[in-house]
Design a protein around this nucleic acid. Sequence first.
DNA 1: TTCGTTTTTATAACGCGTTCAAAATAATGT
DNA 2: ACATTATTTTGAACGCGTTATAAAAACGAA
Lengths: 257, 257
Amino acid sequence: MGLREKRKLERRERILAAAQELIRETGSVGLSMRALARKAEVSLATPYNLFGSKGAVLAELGLAVLKKLERKMEELRSHDPIEDLLHIAELGANTYASDPRFYRTLMAVLTASARGLHDDAISGGSVRLWQRPVEAGIRAGLLRADADSEFVARDLVITFLGVLDLWVRGVLDGEAMRTHILYAFTLALLGLSTDASRAKLLRHYRRFQRQLPREIRVVDNGLARRRARPAGEAANGGAAVAAKVRAPQAALPEGIQ
Amino acid sequence: MGLREKRKLERRERILAAAQELIRETGSVGLSMRALARKAEVSLATPYNLFGSKGAVLAELGLAVLKKLERKMEELRSHDPIEDLLHIAELGANTYASDPRFYRTLMAVLTASARGLHDDAISGGSVRLWQRPVEAGIRAGLLRADADSEFVARDLVITFLGVLDLWVRGVLDGEAMRTHILYAFTLALLGLSTDASRAKLLRHYRRFQRQLPREIRVVDNGLARRRARPAGEAANGGAAVAAKVRAPQAALPEGIQ
DNA sequence: TTCGTTTTTATAACGCGTTCAAAATAATGT
DNA sequence: ACATTATTTTGAACGCGTTATAAAAACGAA
């Protein structure tokens, strides 16, 4: 690898690291390409040369984070594949919940700028990660033999991402997110359970059902649009409180079919 | 209601109708606030006065669409609550799939501009819609008596939205989306099935499993960022093809924890 | 070292979502 | 009828992501 390539890689890493720091320091507010370029000490055009777009920068960061998490998940392996599945899910939930600011921001911005990890999540490596314990469960007689491990794994991934998305949006807090994921997993696995596993899964199911919060109260996810005064013009101390608009319900224009 | 209120409502509806037309005509490209204001024959600031933000305009449109769909869903009621659940899900999937351009665009933009329908979906009316057939199923002895209908309904909503999101992103086509939803529903219900319903649900499960596509090929969802030449400057016929950037994988900056 | 080729930089521009002071307009009191 | 007051619309402006362009810098080869 020539010097040229090395410098390029260096810049790439500097940009990724800057993105990470920026998210940690400011959340999504302040995560602008101009700020990113400044922090990485490159010009505004460089991230576009090296990644293509803002979304691509963050997708790469997100992918790296995901791979790291998946590597930790791979390590979890015991004698009981079903317990493994639940432990893997729990590890994932706990990881996200352990750093809400970072992960919520990252996930939110990945969700928004389409073509995120979702393609990969279904067609790529994530499915295979979940597929392995499912297959092991089938072999061990703990899950129905006629179940297709790939489709089951897809279903688990979709559920996981769905609940995670609610957490990102602040509809669920970390605790509720974890319990919901485990509840959903248990429910899906219960559908595939055999006599050898049903009793245990039912116990799990009842436990998670008991732990689920009945009331949903939307929490502040820190992603709301804040009035970001340019930091230079500190005069006019934020007095203007915009009146909340809540007009009478307008009728739906016809033709929705 | 004074003249003022009437005019206001008029403008609101004009804006919503304009948003709908704009989506149908141009997809997400061209769905700008300036174009919206022009089509609705109001000034750029008016939608902000009346709704608050672009996301809020589309959220209102989306909510109206959702309510309309849910009203159709409510009508589906037969003697078999489990069949009802599947039929409701199928109706939803078919409705979305029947007009991909419109619904994909609407859903994509709702997903992106946070605080969409997702709050409502979990805490609001959607859950209750699914909850009713689940309750009926429990009463009829088709689902386990110790199941909590609210949590089951939440799980179904989350799954539905998760699969729908994959369709919106183009990871699944309409057919695969419908089958995936039905597969996931069947799997969840199978976990709660009783002797009275298990055989039938198993038949469904095997059928949907057979219909699922094994290969995932990402389709064009029409939401990619297109180079939108201002329509006035037709010269310089789109020659410049930007070189695709695909650099060697950069290492993850340390400290992700 | 010198030449030729890439790549980064600096800067300006575009359209975007959003905000704000000022102008225009409807409602109200006399 | 008019003048006052409370809203609402307007038009200009901001920072954003992104692109284009020309100049400068950095590398590889001779």
